[in-house]
């Protein structure tokens, strides 16, 4: 009703929201619907009374061996005759299937049918009650001058804030919103993909340990895929010293990064995410070995390689915990937008 009101905190009197003619039309329509429902209810009640009559009939028929009746022959003719086998009934189960039942069994079937009818009556009555409340709203409340409607868009505001928070990495935000917008079912896929990607990268690293150029390319690829360009630069600057210094720094960094990475998400993130985090924690262990291996290699190359590898893995450690958190905070935004659209 108040779709046009998207500003924060709009106050309108109810009588201005619902012009009298419209109110009258609406109440008329609601009343028509109520009448319709009443007819349906009446029909259902007649079904129920038919059913109870039939139950009584089925109960009493087997009391005697046979009953003199007029047997219908077509719709316009009868034969004088009698009912025989008074404890045998053929009951339609539906879809053209009939079952031969005794009187008691038939009564049970009919009672079940009666229960279904009763529940239908109940739901219909609730329906009518709802419609009556609606009608009384249109008749009593909608025309009153002293009532106002206050419309305030809470979610719009909060989502905007979150956008600005998460806005420092646009590309990732876009990709995460894309992933989120596909729904919760795709979240699992998303993580599975990240998972497989990490495994892939590890394998590649192990295979191409001696091939530094390839390694660098991979690292660059990784940088492109991961989020924060600024943090990358900072990391590479802080780590970009010589090999002898780098080793302890890196080890410290990995251990320091490892602990918050594993401890943080447990407090903040949902239960699906820790596995991914564990993978991340494991990743530096692999790289540590690499680092040790490379110290034995020529210094110029190794320093090159170090910066590369350090950039990659500190990046993975630092950004990955951030990445899901960004995705997490952006979740309500995207869903909210989906709803809006």
């Amino acid at each position: 009703m108040a779709e046009g009101l998207k500003k924060k905190g709009t106050v309108k009197s109810l009588s201005s929201l619902f012009p009298p003619e419209e109110t009258q039309k609406a109440s008329e329509r609601v009343r028509d619907t109520i009448a319709e429902r009443h007819e349906e209810l009446q029909q259902l009640k007649s079904f129920i009374s038919d059913n109870t009559n039939l139950v009584n009939l089925v109960r009493t028929l087997p009391n005697e061996l046979n009953h003199q009746i007029m047997v219908p022959f077509g719709k316009a003719a009868f034969f004088p005759g009698q009912l025989i086998h008074t404890n045998e009934f053929m009951v339609l189960l539906g879809d053209g299937y009939y079952a031969e039942r005794t009187s008691k069994q038939t009564v049970e079937i009919l009672k079940r049918r009666g229960n279904i009818l009763e529940s239908q009556v109940e739901s219909l009555k609730a329906d009518i009650q709802d419609l009556k409340t609606e009608a009384s709203f249109f008749e009593n409340e909608a025309g009153r001058k002293d009532l106002v409607e206050i419309v305030e868009d809470y979610e719009e505001e909060s989502s905007l804030q979150e956008v600005s928070k998460a806005g420092d990495s646009k590309a990732d935000f876009a990709s995460s919103t894309e992933a989120e917008s596909k729904g919760t079912g795709n979240e699992g896929d998303e993580y599975a993909r990240i998972f497989s990607r990490i495994a892939e990268l590890e394998k590649e690293e192990e295979e191409a340990e001696k091939d530094e150029d390839d390694e660098d390319e991979e690292n660059e690829d990784d940088i492109d895929h991961s989020v924060n360009q600024d943090s990358v630069d900072q990391e590479s600057i802080s780590c970009g010293v010589d090999g002898s210094k780098l080793l302890p720094v890196y080890q410290d960094g990995s251990s320091q990064d490892g602990t918050p990475a594993s401890s943080k998400p447990r407090f903040t993130e949902s239960s699906i995410k820790p596995p991914v985090r564990k993978e991340n924690v494991r990743a530096p262990a692999v790289t540590k070995e690499e680092v040790f291996v490379r110290t034995s290699e020529p210094s110029t190359n190794s320093s090159k390689a170090f910066t590369g590898s350090i950039v990659e893995h500190t990046r993975n450690l630092e950004t990955n915990p951030r990445e899901p958190s960004v995705a997490h905070s952006s979740k309500p935004v995207s869903r909210f937008r989906m709803n809006r659209k």
Binding site: D50, L57, I69, P72, F79, G81, L83, F89, V91, R113
Partner: peptide, 15 residues
Amino acid sequence: VNLGSEVYMQADVPD
């Protein structure tokens, strides 16, 4: 014979 609600019973017409 249809007794109602698709419940049938056997009937016999002698003549």
